[in-house]
Nucleic acid binder design. Structure first.
Lengths: 371, 371
DNA sequence: AGCATCAATGTTGCCGGAAACATAGCGTGT
DNA sequence: ACACGCTATGTTTCCGGCAACATTGATGCT
């Protein structure tokens, strides 16, 4: 029930004698008309209803301990009755900080980025934050600058840049948000930490598996070199080969898409003698499988194919794809968590573990006898 | 270069004689210390630099015509020198409206929803808005309420609910955001408009294609009934069959996932004699293809399979999938556009056209002779 | 010439919350 | 019994933008 009678002060202050008058001074009453239908209750409305000053309400909301139980009770009651919710714009205006984090992303339709975003939003929600999302088009740098500009106006607590490509990194290197920025969901090879330790993904396990099946000549389909994720995976491929005394028969250049995997394999006349193809993601592996099939090669009898990511569809490819399962949602959560720690000024010791599990399916099998 | 000397008023007002003193009154100078390093310039800083009142700056920013050219020029110069950007939190606090739209979504990892989101964010960016994204988990209604709660505090201009399921609709029916809400990217069968006109997608074209190939017994793999998109597609399937005097041999229940398509086909002993399977999305079609293959049936020689969506991978399935291409990004853009019109109080006559193009690939072929 | 009018611009106050500062009242030590 | 100090609470001010109102000077009309 809404408060309508201006004179009906609920819960008159017990100790308020007529001689001293109400303890609430005039300035506190400046918004007598508040509480009207439609508009949300403010701390002033709550203060009025509770017979205290707005500052006491603020103190209660901020967990200040020194409030008398009786006062505390009245405030609680008023808060509940008026269904008070803090106005975050006012809080942001005052403090210069908001409960929002900007997120710049592109290629949202791709599995990895969108899953990372999902993880980040979930982590944000749990922390009471929302993500302000702006998508950009890498082909249009002006849009990126415009997006940065938009985010700058929004009193953000921080900025999360979801997919780390060189274009993004360069554009953001010059941007000054005035708030913490977390760039990328995968540690870049320029990040200073030893990438060989962090970014092996599950490649060692994958190559143990393949070598165990008798393969010793491999072909890699790489992602676009501009992406740090693509570079990391290519390096993990090379590192794993080198560790086993093997060398790559070649690297085909893809762009993450199934089409690029298809075309890369179609353009490689004899596969350089490889018996196994390791693509940097599942989509390119899918394209490779189709290309091999069209060239009359059976998967996995003639050529084994493996991917990375374990997109939900990978288990239902024909044949089901052996792949490295990457926990993108965890990456997104970790990214947000790191950013949140930076926002709060805390050091974040936890390095993102780029763990990946080998998922063996039917697209990899024993190498053909002829070798 | 930052302004540091308190006395160095840039661009002294030309007409300001010593007798009358500067035209800027004391109240305008209340933020003399502004312009310090770090903090962004405000209209007061700009006013000070230009030698005008802050209100003149506001008027300039809001496109007020009655400003003398000389004054206008000074304001422009000050704005540029100080690199002024409006503080949107202050604007939101004052007006109760922001340049942000809330977006509630789930299943962000799925192609349709994420592509719709991408379209919506692009449209939002073009309109100068950002999307505040909150993902929810349909299995946890408390999270949804919490998400609604969070968005309510953020002075949003509107709310966009991306994927329309009954759970979402019900939860949002009782939620009062106090701002326009756009629910769903596909018109629901309960939306009042004649769904048979709007939501045929490309099913007529698909069935023309299949019937032309000699098929007359069909099986449908439906999406989860809770999704309006799934209901729309199932109805479009039935409608298209009825229009041709054919009837369905059965409807298998899926949940959008490739796994569900696989399991549905595995569980259907003889496919009810169908020679063609029409899945409500490409993932379920993919699962169906694998299941058919494992059961010794060839696609498309023995059974034709078609999907809906045209996800980027569909062209590289084995065999490449015949499907109906849906323009999700356009749906997302249309959804945002409709919401924006509602926010601005304008009627939005444009109905979202659920257009879909038939993409014929190798997964559909002539029906086997025996029929 | 004098007054109404209008164009251009300045001043005040409000949005909702929170920090900084102020004050009333109570207990305690001597 | 009185000063001191602390606790609980009240008051003022600020964040940055904008609306409403106020003011100034020039023009036009009679």
């Amino acid at each position: 029930m809404a408060i309508e009678e201006p004179g009906s002060v609920p819960e008159a202050v017990p100790g308020g004698e007529a001689t001293t008058g109400p303890r609430v001074a005039r300035s506190t009453l400046r918004r007598v008309s508040a509480g009207r239908a439609g508009r949300a209750a403010t701390i002033y409305d709550v203060a009025l209803a509770a017979g205290v000053s707005h500052q006491t309400v603020t103190r209660y909301l901020n967990g200040f301990a020194g409030i008398r139980p009786a006062t505390r009770e009245r405030v609680e009651k008023a808060l509940k009755e008026l269904d008070y919710r803090p106005n975050l714009a006012a809080r942001a205006l005052n403090s210069g900080r908001s409960q929002r984090v900007g997120a710049i992303t592109h290629e949202l339709d791709q599995f990895g980025p969108s899953k990372i975003l999902q993880g980040a939003t979930a982590a944000a929600r749990d922390a009471g934050f929302v993500l302000d999302i702006v998508t950009v088009d890498l082909a249009r740098p002006d849009v990126l600058n415009e997006a940065i500009e938009m985010l700058r106006r929004h009193d953000l607590a921080g900025v999360l840049v979801m997919s780390s490509t060189d274009t993004m990194s360069e554009a953001l290197a010059t941007a000054d948000f005035g708030v913490p920025v977390y760039l990328g969901a995968e540690p870049d090879d320029t990040s200073g930490t030893d990438p060989s330790e962090l970014t092996q993904f599950g490649f060692p396990a994958l190559f143990d598996h393949l070598v165990g099946l008798g393969h010793h000549t491999f072909l890699h389909i790489a992602g676009p070199a501009e992406w740090s994720a693509a570079r990391n995976r290519s390096r993990a491929y090379s590192t794993a080969l080198a560790a086993r005394g093997l060398s790559s028969a070649g690297v085909l250049q893809g762009d993450w898409s199934a089409r690029s995997g298809y075309e890369a394999v179609m353009a490689a006349p004899d596969l350089a003698g490889a018996t196994a193809i390791v693509a940097a993601n599942d989509q390119m592996a899918l394209g490779a499988i189709l290309a091999l099939t069209e060239r009359g090669l059976r998967v996995p009898e003639d050529v084994s194919v493996a991917g990375v990511d374990d997109i939900p569809e990978a288990a239902y490819f024909s044949p089901p794809l052996t792949t490295l399962r990457v926990d993108f949602a965890a990456q997104g959560r970790a990214a947000f968590s790191t950013l949140l720690d930076r926002i709060r000024g805390e050091a974040h010791a936890l390095e993102p573990a780029l763990h990946a599990d080998l998922i063996v399916r039917r697209s990899t099998a024993r190498a053909p006898a002829s070798g």
